[in-house]
């Protein structure tokens, strides 16, 4: 088991700043997800840890060792690529043991480890096949096998599930998480899919435009988003953000006459955040909205509505029936209410 430490790591591509002096530490044996929209620097961070690129400034340590200038092979890690990067002319077995052959591991040891990995991943019947003869899910398993057979303390994954269909993605999510816990590997996992991050991670590092937006457990990011960006990125669907404006000594929802149940003073504007699942249809609720459409998901429905200029989603159990244009009112529990500063986007407590 190894920990990873980044100290003010920056990466510049010419003038463009891909990473802006980010620092974080990971616990040995933990599952860390680098999450963010495309172009946020998450893949760059992973490639810097792997040693496939070198940072423009800053240090990277793995365990106690400074690896900033070490080649990838000497960092004690394995990696699963988004495209799997399987060698097309080699059989599944040869793909998996490629690294062992490079390191001249004895035949007996190679066979033993191959048997273990194929057992673990259920690849036994595919060993003689070529990658082109495998389905996407099977290729992904082979890539995983090649990473696991190295028995390195750290495994890096770059959006490994993005090429799979939804059903398989769900299965592989559980499987990868289970493997990571069973083998006690330190896993750094890059994804833009917040569902993957929420379901798998011990800790999520949310990145935005080359900076760390928030670090925390899935619970922390969900329950206490530090910024409107986190609020709008975590959760499916994400949190409703409704701008408020001054109304006498209180606040009202921007562009409406309804007063908001908020008693916080602020010179700038405020943004009220409530998750769709925390909103309850309530005829005496403070929030008045106009229904735009209803999306039926089976277990629940998402009612899309408008409050002044803002869009709103309300999660309602089973199939909700509303005409477009219908007026609804909603309420929420006080502890489900989040407030953000309109200018800075930062969370306001109290």
């Amino acid at each position: 088991m190894s920990s990873i430490h980044l100290e003010s790591v920056a990466k510049l591509w010419g003038e463009a700043r891909a990473l802006d002096a980010i620092s974080f530490d990971t616990e040995p044996g933990s599952f860390v997800v680098l999450l963010g929209p495309s172009g946020c620097g998450k893949s760059t961070t992973l490639r810097l840890i792997a040693g496939l690129d070198t940072p423009s400034s800053g240090r990277i340590r793995i365990g106690e060792k400074d690896v900033t200038n070490l080649p990838p092979a000497e960092r004690g890690l394995s990696m699963v690529f988004q495209s799997y990067a399987l060698f097309p002319h080699l059989s599944v077995a040869e793909n998996i043991v490629f690294g062992l052959r490079v390191r001249k591991v004895s035949t007996a040891e190679r066979e033993r480890r191959l048997a273990r990995v194929t057992d673990l991943l259920g690849l036994g019947h595919l060993l003689e096949r070529r990658p082109s003869q495998l389905s996407g899910g099977q290729q992904q398993r082979v890539a995983l096998g090649r990473a696991l057979i190295a028995e390195q303390p750290i495994c890096l994954m770059d959006e490994p599930l993005s090429n799979l269909d939804a059903q398989l993605r769900g299965d592989m999510r559980r499987e990868i998480r289970a493997l990571q816990q069973r083998l006690a590997i330190t896993m750094v996992y890059v994804t833009h899919d917040q569902v993957e991050a929420m379901t798998m991670a011990d800790r999520i590092i949310l990145l935005r435009e080359g900076r760390i937006e928030q670090v925390g457990t899935p619970d922390e990011l969900y329950e206490k988003p530090r910024t409107t960006f986190t609020a709008s990125f975590i959760g499916a669907p994400p949190m409703n953000l409704i701008p408020l404006e001054h109304a006498g000594d209180g606040w009202r929802f921007a562009g409406t006459d309804s007063r908001a149940p908020v008693n916080v003073t602020s010179a700038d504007g405020l943004v009220l955040g409530v998750r769709p699942e925390d909103l309850v249809l309530d005829d005496r609720g403070p929030l008045a909205a106009t229904v735009v459409s209803v999306e039926f998901h089976g277990a629940d429905s998402l009612v899309a509505a408008r409050v002044g200029e803002a869009n709103l989603l309300i999660r309602v159990p089973r199939h909700a029936h509303f005409e477009a244009g219908a007026r609804v009112r909603a309420s929420w529990a006080a502890h489900h209410q989040h407030l953000f500063d309109a200018r800075s986007g930062l969370r306001r407590d109290g």
């Binding site: 496939l52 495209s83 990067a85 690294g99």
Partner: peptide
């Protein structure tokens, strides 16, 4: 040949010569 193949080989510790011989030439 996708660049990720050479990166995967580099991660496994394959030298440039080994990568050329075992991966590039066969492909």
């Amino acid at each position: 040949i996708p660049p990720s193949l050479s990166e995967a080989a580099a991660l496994e510790g394959a030298s440039r010569g080994y990568y050329l011989r075992r991966i590039v030439l066969p492909l």
